[in-house]
Simulated assay, not measured.
Amino acid sequence: MGATSSVYENSSVHDFTVKDSSGKDVNLSIYEGKVLLIVNVASKCGLTNSNYTQLTELYRKYKDKGFVILAFPCNQFLKQEPGPIEETVQYVCERFSAEYPIFGKVKVNGTEATPLYKYLKANSGGYMGASIKWNFTKFLISKKGKVIRRVGPRTEPLSLEDDIQKALEEP
């Protein structure tokens, strides 16, 4: 992990540009001053219903206080996000009333992993840093763009509520 983490040592999430679901560049600096929850998502996973339902609940509760969820569809885990991005966005918006940004599909592992996910993995510490294990891995990001906490797929989004509240209270 040494070389990877040193590359991103002085960076923040706000230094990255990603593609939205229409393929347009989005500079994540637009989220400076916001608390973020970055999640790799999939529509056909056994964890889909509970995660998306709770993500929508969290977003509705805290969006007016400076909280944003950034959802990144990923097809790397048993091909559980197989269709075109337009289908994913439609499904998530209709089925789970998602109002938060859903970005273009990404790779979160391997040599083709998006730079944002390389940064997240390198800066989340702990034994999980080397790779993303499954869909719905969550990264809580401070208003300054730094990783506060990483949790695994089976950690329910609502269990992060105390951490989200603390992060929102930070200057």
Rank of each mutant, 00 (worst) to 15 (best):
M1H: 12
G2P: 00
S5Y: 06
S6N: 12
E9D: 14
N10Y: 00
N10M: 06
S11G: 08
V13T: 06
V13Y: 08
H14M: 11
F16Q: 01
V18L: 07
K19P: 10
D20P: 09
S21Q: 12
S21M: 10
G23D: 11
K24S: 14
N27W: 10
L28E: 04
S29Q: 03
I30N: 04
E32T: 10
K34L: 08
K34G: 06
V35F: 04
N40R: 06
V41R: 04
A42S: 08
K44C: 08
G46Q: 10
T53H: 13
T56I: 06
T56C: 14
E57W: 07
L58R: 06
K61A: 02
Y62S: 09
D64Q: 11
G66F: 02
L70A: 09
L70V: 10
L70N: 06
A71R: 07
F72M: 00
C74E: 07
Q76N: 12
F77S: 04
K79L: 07
Q80W: 04
G83L: 00
P84N: 13
I85Q: 09
E86H: 10
Q90V: 13
V92R: 03
V92Q: 00
C93M: 14
C93A: 14
E94L: 12
S97A: 15
A98I: 01
E99V: 14
E99Y: 13
I102L: 13
I102V: 15
F103P: 05
G104N: 12
G104L: 05
G104T: 07
K107F: 07
V108G: 07
V108H: 02
G110L: 07
T111F: 11
A113S: 13
K118F: 11
K118I: 13
K121Y: 10
K121R: 14
S124K: 07
M128W: 04
S131L: 11
I132P: 03
F136V: 04
T137K: 06
S142Q: 08
K143R: 10
K144P: 06
K146W: 05
R150K: 11
V151C: 02
G152A: 11
G152D: 14
R154H: 15
E156K: 13
E156T: 09
P157I: 00
S159C: 13
E161T: 11
E161N: 05
D162T: 13
K166M: 10
L168D: 03
E170Q: 15
E170H: 12
